[in-house]
């Protein structure tokens, strides 16, 4: 809950259909790009539910500022396991955290 409040909301103009991650009960928007130096990742996102937004904040903090090569090495599942949050990644949760992680990895593989 607190983490969700700490993550700033996306302006509505960035909540586009292209940024929407499908396959979740909640809506999740994700933008991922390289910063001005073209080295490090910048990720912004939002969700219409507090819990997913809070989990999303954790995911974003794992990847932000890394180079794409470093980011590819991240095992978000293992990180969630250590945080005791792995149940939120189960497919039946339908909350899209799994989809967020998979989408990030998918985008990384395009760099």
């Amino acid at each position: 809950m607190l983490l969700a409040k700490s993550l700033p909301s996306l302006p509505d103009c960035l909540k586009t259909d292209e940024a929407l991650i499908r396959g979740c009960e909640s809506k999740v928007w994700l933008h991922i790009d390289l910063d001005e130096s073209q080295h490090n990742l910048v990720l912004v996102g939002d969700s219409d539910t507090r819990i997913v937004k809070g989990l999303f904040a954790i995911v974003l903090s794992m990847y932000s500022g890394l180079t794409p090569a470093q980011a590819k090495e991240i095992d978000a599942y293992a990180e969630f396991e250590t945080l005791g949050l792995i149940k939120h990644l189960s497919p039946s949760r339908g909350n899209g955290v799994r989809a967020i992680v998979d989408t990030i990895q998918d985008k990384l593989s395009q760099w």
């Binding site: 009960e25 909640s26 219409d48 539910t49 507090r50 819990i51 997913v52 909350n95």
Partner: peptide
């Protein structure tokens, strides 16, 4: 206006 998902999870 709360999302049903948050309350159901709690």
């Amino acid at each position: 206006e709360e999302h049903h998902y948050d309350i159901a999870t709690l």
